[in-house]
Design a protein around this nucleic acid. Structure first.
Lengths: 330, 330
DNA sequence: GTCTTCATTGTAAGCGGTTGCAGGGCTGCT
DNA sequence: AGCAGCCCTGCAACCGCTTACAATGAAGAC
């Protein structure tokens, strides 16, 4: 089915059909109905590829996340999607599984599809990719990984602040041996979180001991990290996790080993995903406003388009949410 | 950047550039290099819209799921994506939040983008949508909601079998008062699962009592269902959940009310998502081969394309996975 | 009744690629 | 030297839709 066939059937020109389909009000009501009827009768679906080609602009924005299985990313995505939908855009979702090659491929694909803007909510990054995006001229917003110049907005979370809050809280509960359970990601924010953790530890100097174990971003990875941690002989009284998703595995593994939480070991997460409230015990964590991030990302992208003054940099402070996975050190 | 600019810079025709970019081996090596160099220098990204328009065929397949927050859907999506990627396709992800209007919109969008095929992994459905897809002529695969005719493949899970296994297992543990915690979905498979549960119950006739509570698909919804269930005075010794995702909320709410699992009440889930293993207690559930579903969906779509004989109907049997959330009735 | 104006609709030139067909340059053969 | 034949390229039509501009006809102005 093409525009032309519809036009033929409605006995009008393709231009008119196009006008009707795009709600240009210049069309006479009777003509409009005729066209709509013809389109319906033919089960006509406008070719969106042709549309954006001819129109020059696209109504979709591209979003790339690292891991669709980690609810954090999905939450941001959903907010982004909802906001986009409100403005008449749809979003093309791409995911990388933390691999830079896939990041690059995703970006290329999105640019190739001529997305109206790019949202990179990823932990891995590569300068070349940033440069490629900049050169493409597309408005972009980066979460955590900073990028400068061009139509770029950065949304970042002050992990140092967050980690400090967590560590300080644990310290105040008497914890002096703390471990970090994270995962390898080419760059921030995981690296950042780990560094933030170490920095927070450093403030206490010799008073506290710490140690870090890295695995992959999943509950299984969290469990693995615990095994590594405990296997090493280091006996932490608290484990700070890079995120809630991994923390779920940390909790399970501790339980499996007969370690009571928070009796023997306290555990904290990061992100405050919905599930953090449903673990047993409920997880103490640091809240990041995921919905706001998604919304802001979209705003930023469309604003750039309108060339209004967009906030080039947004900073968010994680809030400590105390639940049941933390308690006084034994 | 357009093909033409690259051509100009490389001092060749657009046809040649196109050939190079598409790896048509007829091009002389030296020319090829020249073109590639020009393209790189210009940070050229082929316009995929123009490409599919001109080429007539697209390299992306569309996938629609009901709820991105429910890991079940994400798991099949990932498998689908991986399989697609292997064949040189990418997948356009659409999600509906269980709303038929969004389903319809998603399908239209996907057809408009001229996806090479459609995978509908959704719980809600509408005959009109099925008809629209059929009329579009696109190969499609449906998970659970059956559709007939056209280039259609159905993948379905024998919920009756699964539910029977769960109920029978619970029955053998002495349970006689069982409840079902599910959620409203316009159609299958939720309705199907509920019906399957009721059917399984019916086999025991008067010997067992049952009751169902419906909320929305989330841990919070599961908690809500428990509140409704217990608030009604019905005191089940076992709660069968429509899926693991909701079961997580069921577990939490029971705990919050001081109900021991499985001491006082046994709980079963459905799907066997990764997290089922990480709940406390670990969840007894019914396994559905999500990865296989994703893979099969893709195979089916591409097979249709090649017009080979594709299995029109695939049936899967859920396996009972016993963990720690079930035990003898009190 | 004639001319201007406005509301509608049509014409046709792209948008950025792909691809069938034609053509130019070389090679090898007689 | 002359010619067939193969490589490699270029030409140009077309994919389906948007949109600037032209054209049509009816209504209003004088």
């Amino acid at each position: 089915m093409t525009l032309e066939e519809v036009a033929r059937r409605a006995k009008v020109s393709t231009a008119t059909v196009s006008r009707v389909l795009n709600n240009l009000d210049v069309v006479r009501e009777s003509t409009r109905r005729k066209v709509l009827q013809a389109a319906a009768a033919l089960n006509y679906h406008p070719n969106l590829n042709a549309r954006t080609l001819a129109g020059g602009k696209s109504r979709s924005i591209g979003a790339i996340v690292s891991n669709l299985s980690n609810p954090f990313f999905v939450d941001v995505l959903r907010a982004l999607d909802a906001a986009a939908r409100e403005r008449g855009y749809d979003v093309l979702i791409e995911h990388t599984d933390y691999r830079v090659t896939r990041l690059r491929a995703g970006v290329r694909s999105l640019i190739g599809k001529r997305a109206a803007g790019l949202a990179l909510i990823v932990s891995e990054m590569d300068p070349a990719v940033i440069e490629e995006i900049r050169a493409s001229g597309l408005p972009a917003v980066y979460y955590d990984v900073g990028a400068a110049g061009g139509k770029t907005t950065n949304i970042r979370v002050r992990y140092e602040t967050g980690m400090q809050r967590a560590v300080q809280y644990l310290y105040s509960l008497g914890h002096r041996r703390m471990a970090f359970a994270g995962h390898h990601a080419a760059l921030s924010p995981l690296e950042v979180r780990k560094k933030a953790f170490l920095a927070a530890m450093k403030r206490y100097g010799r008073q506290v001991q710490s140690r870090a174990a890295l695995s992959h971003d999943s509950p299984a990875g969290g469990a693995q990290a615990v095994r590594e941690l405990l296997g090493s002989g280091f006996r932490p009284t608290a484990i700070v996790c890079v995120n809630d998703y991994m923390a779920m595995g940390v909790l399970r593994e501790l339980r499996a080993r007969g370690v009571a939480v928070p009796g023997d070991v306290s555990v904290t997460g990061f992100d405050n995903i919905e599930l953090a409230e449903f673990t047993n015990p409920a997880l103490t964590t640091l809240d990041i406003p995921r919905a706001a991030i998604g919304r802001m990302a979209l705003e930023a992208l469309l604003q750039e388009e309108g060339s209004e003054t967009a906030p080039r940099e947004v900073l968010l402070d994680p809030e400590l949410v105390v639940r049941d996975s933390t308690g006084p050190a034994r």
